[in-house]
């Protein structure tokens, strides 16, 4: 195996952000410390945050608002999740790829792409790939997609018998060879026994680039607690939200 491994990718998160505008009254004493102009409130002189009391407060509101309110909030939360999923899938339909936004996980395309960079992909069905295009591909047997640059294209060719290359009657048939900018040699060793990439292995081609943003998902993958804390926190906020 080569020491500089492939640039690996993960899908970016599918859920949208929940509306999280919630006022927690017990936090108000801090405003005095930061000296914002603040109308006097009944909680103003509370010495410190009393967490059990705060939750008792919230529970009381929950009881006052009733079961229907809880149901409504669950519905709200579900609609936020569903619209996030719809946006993701709609983007996938427009761009014709299964994952239109991906995050770079390793360094084989440095200095072009670093870990945590966000890439936007398209996969136009009737457009050929060219040398120099940066493609994301997934070969059977490999579980993670790889983003590398196209080194060779052979248009109108397909794999014939005994791994020979023959002309194909289908004009969209194309054989590709890729290489990572930061690797010394091409990717044949990464192809799991294949000698060429075919069109069906390509997930998409990189069209746009946004640095660093994908680090959020990397952090969530590396520390699953963070993911659960975030999801749990969002869910709790959605439930106890008042307006």
């Amino acid at each position: 195996m080569r020491e500089s491994d492939a640039t690996l990718l993960s899908r970016s998160p599918k859920d949208g952000r929940g509306a999280s505008e919630t006022c927690i009254h017990s936090l108000q004493p801090f405003t005095a410390i930061l000296s914002f102009p603040q109308p006097p409130s009944p909680y103003f002189c509370q010495p410190s945050i009393d967490w059990p009391a705060m939750f008792a407060d919230e529970l009381k509101t929950l009881r006052r608002l009733g079961f229907r309110h809880v149901l409504l909030q669950i519905l709200n939360f579900a609609s936020v999740l569903a619209s996030g999923l719809m946006i993701w899938k709609g983007l996938g339909l427009i761009t014709n790829t299964e994952s239109p936004i991906v995050v770079v996980l390793s360094g084989s395309m440095e200095p072009a792409f670093y870990r945590g960079d966000l890439l936007f992909l398209t996969n136009p069905a009737n457009e050929k790939y060219h040398t120099g295009d940066i493609t994301v591909y997934k070969v059977p047997g490999a579980d993670i997609p790889i983003v590398h640059r196209v080194l060779e294209t052979h248009d109108g060719a397909k794999i014939g018998r005994r791994a020979s290359i023959v002309a194909s009657p289908l004009s969209q048939d194309q054989l590709l060879l890729t290489k990572g900018d930061n690797n010394y040699i091409d990717d044949i060793e990464l192809y799991q026994g294949l000698e060429w990439l075919e069109r069906k292995h390509i997930v998409g081609k990189v069209r746009g680039f946004l640095p660093y943003i994908g680090y959020v998902t990397i952090a969530m993958n590396d520390f699953p607690q963070l993911k659960y804390a975030l999801l749990g926190g969002l869910g709790l906020l959605a439930l106890i939200q008042r307006e």
Partner: peptide, 8 residues
């Protein structure tokens, strides 16, 4: 054979 090649 009509295969168009582009090799970097």
């Amino acid at each position: 054979q009509g295969i168009r090649n582009d090799v970097v």
